[in-house]
Nucleic acid binder design. Sequence first.
DNA 1: AAGTGGTCTAGACCACCAT
DNA 2: TGGTGGTCTAGACCACTTC
Lengths: 256, 256
Amino acid sequence: MGNHDGTTRVGRAQPAHQRLSEALRARLLDGEFAGGDRLPTEAELEQEYGLSRQTVRRAFLDLVAEGLVRRHPGRGTFAVHSGAPRYARTVASIDELMEWGDSELEVDEQISLQSDPHRANRLALDSPVIALLRYHRKFGGLVFGITEVALAPSLGEELIEADAVGDGLRTVIRAVDDCLEGAIAGVEQMLNAVAATPEIAAGLGLGVGVPVLYAERLFFDEEERPVELATTYYHPDRYAYRLELRGRVGPRRDRR
Amino acid sequence: MGNHDGTTRVGRAQPAHQRLSEALRARLLDGEFAGGDRLPTEAELEQEYGLSRQTVRRAFLDLVAEGLVRRHPGRGTFAVHSGAPRYARTVASIDELMEWGDSELEVDEQISLQSDPHRANRLALDSPVIALLRYHRKFGGLVFGITEVALAPSLGEELIEADAVGDGLRTVIRAVDDCLEGAIAGVEQMLNAVAATPEIAAGLGLGVGVPVLYAERLFFDEEERPVELATTYYHPDRYAYRLELRGRVGPRRDRR
DNA sequence: AAGTGGTCTAGACCACCAT
DNA sequence: TGGTGGTCTAGACCACTTC
């Protein structure tokens, strides 16, 4: 008989399973179930939130995928006690990539149009012109990364008009995501070690030729079109790329 | 009335939704739906596989999470045309980390017990003794990475007894996973750039002091206990760490 | 209007675990 | 034995896209 809440809800903001998983996520992050405690059972949540069992289960699916809880048949659902006092930087999802909590961003060179055939090609543009932005990122007053962001010229102009790019910004991709209304659907990242060029060395306060962590990120929209290309050089003593993977996402291989 | 297939199935190998998602995954990787083609609809798959709609949807959930397909209300389900001819190395899941397709592993130093307080501490061991293994990895005859793996001594002995560690091995963590019966449930990875020590330089065929990509991986079991600590140095010209993220796993941030 | 995926409910059977 | 999560079905309503 479908939706049981009676009302036809003009603008149902979110699905119920999503509201529930967010509610539980909030309770988890508040520490209500720290230390690996047991969460309410499905039956209890059905009662508490007035939902069907499948909807409750759907909410748990998300939390399991995020690695926030673990479920054991016959025993219950348990909070994953987040190993350390929550790692300095964990980049396990696109949303986290877009946040970059407590660092400061300072623009070195505002968006301008440049001819850059290589980057234009990476962005699948017809012309060799791209919009380029340069900035560095500080933590505790020390520069730990310098970044160049390449965008399609049209998108660059939109960002300028929206006055979206300034020192208050957290991440460019976040501004792009807002501008495109949440269209960012994927990233390809590449990390490697390179020797600091004189320019990079100066920017990071390092010696020329010193090892530097290099990251290249290509963001895609929902239609698999490249949207933004960001290249960053990180100070190896002030930053390390961290990634946490939980659960087995992917082809569940055969157990022999 | 529950399972509709009549038979009580002594050892149901896998859930139906999992069998279906694997079948579809196989068809996708075979290229049956290359180029962003449309996949069969839910109704068609219900017919074809004799399943209920929810079960078909459950199978699609996994494929969406893996980024293999994308679904559009009112339009259908479409294969994600994997950007390039499938990247050399994409490490987006624990299972992929355990595979490491087409490279050769050659053991430099078989498992032996060592006193190493620091690594023992990382593995949450009581004594400072660990089991240590060293190997390098080749691709096309060229060494691109050298690795040290630290394990609890008991686990190291199990691996030796099982004769699991040899040049035919693909990954150590895979052997450990088999040994523990699929208990590996998480990884924390850290990547950085370091200068090659004489030892590393010799192993990789590089000059001393040259930038090298360094990766540290700590694997956890289902109870959040550290199981294996692997440290690898990669030849920067022969390997780059690649990571592909699809979809938005994680707290769906508020749209303003 | 017909078809698509998105959501939700109600009810069932099962394997597992604690008691 | 009763409770837990895991699986599956049947049927419903909805918003969206395409024709």
